[in-house]
């Protein structure tokens, strides 16, 4: 099976800019051709957001399973003042308190994140959640950081000694700012205490910098929803040239989706930060 992991590449990512659906279609067509030439019995794309691309794949007979949800916030319609004012008063009070407590002795700002720090904080956080670090291996993180540097936008929390203790590493393409990777100095903050303050800062930065959409990624659904982010289902989409084999993929996706819905945290995901 030839599987293309999108890293949101088919939706506002480094492969296809937001709104350029024909380019996404061309990539999928290329994937299909490659799969056939390699003799793969099936092929597919992971993390296809529920938009036009997903619709085209579903219409083309792809088996699909909704196995994750990304949370996105429209940042075109409000100033920071309007944004906070629109939040229900009680909720606003609670999240503001969380922000204050989490930001004690820290400076939260948008800033540069060097490769070494990105790798160290990311791997610290993965280990804390019993996730193998090879899901985001060192060379991959370094390559992403280096190659996507012109688009990088990170929110970092810095301690009083000037050390970076937490980071949201993100990239913005054509107005969509995606926070794909989180990192944390877990020895100091095992529960990601600066999370609320960093999230609030990121939202305000998006609201004031011409960003259209802030993509907060997967996980922490309830917290992101409290900040007004809307869930966008992410699909695993699979296909084969053979009708019988595609039927197997449909049956497999059906079971996978049922398992995913039956678990409050999705499939084999303990808890994630971004």
């Amino acid at each position: 099976m030839l599987l293309a992991h999108s890293l949101a590449g088919l939706h506002g990512g480094p492969l296809v800019l937001p709104g350029h659906q024909p380019a996404a279609q061309a990539l999928v067509a290329g994937l299909e051709r490659t799969a056939r030439s390699l003799g793969a019995w099936a092929w597919g794309v992971a993390n296809v957001p529920a938009d036009g691309m997903a619709g085209r794949l579903l219409g083309a007979g792809y088996a699909a399973a909704h196995v994750a949800t990304a949370y996105r916030l429209d940042t075109t319609k409000a100033t920071p003042e309007d944004y906070w004012a629109a939040m229900p008063r009680r909720r606003r009070g609670k999240v503001r308190r969380e922000q204050r407590l989490g930001a004690r002795e820290l400076t939260i700002a948008e800033g540069g994140l060097d490769e070494d720090t990105l790798v160290r904080l990311t791997h610290d956080l993965l280990r804390e959640h019993d996730t193998p670090t090879d899901v985001l291996p060192d060379p991959f993180l370094r390559a992403v950081s280096r190659r996507l540097r012109p688009y990088g936008r990170a929110t970092i929390a810095t301690g009083e000694g000037g050390e970076i203790v937490a980071a949201f590493a993100g990239w913005e393409f054509a107005g969509e700012w995606s926070m794909w990777i989180a990192g944390l100095r877990t020895g100091r903050y095992p529960a990601f205490e600066p999370y609320h303050a960093m999230l609030a800062h990121t939202i305000e930065a998006a609201l004031t910098s011409g960003t259209r959409v802030l993509n907060l990624g997967r996980g922490n659904a309830s917290v992101k929803a409290r900040y007004g982010a809307v869930g966008t289902p992410l699909y695993l989409a699979l296909k084969s040239d053979d009708r019988r084999d595609t039927a197997l993929l449909h049956a497999w996706c059906r079971r996978l989706e049922a398992r995913s819905h039956a678990s409050p945290h999705g499939l084999a995901v303990s808890s994630r930060c971004c």
Binding site: A50, D51, G52, M53, A54, G55, R56, L58, G59, A60, G61, Y62, A63, A64, H66, P233, T246, A247, H250, R254
Partner: peptide, 20 residues
């Protein structure tokens, strides 16, 4: 089978139709 799965799930149905 794809058509039945698309009809069985209103979100998929709407995605496929909107894409067209």
């Amino acid at each position: 089978l794809a058509a039945t799965m698309n009809c069985n799930d209103k979100l998929r149905m709407r995605l496929a139709l909107r894409a067209a």
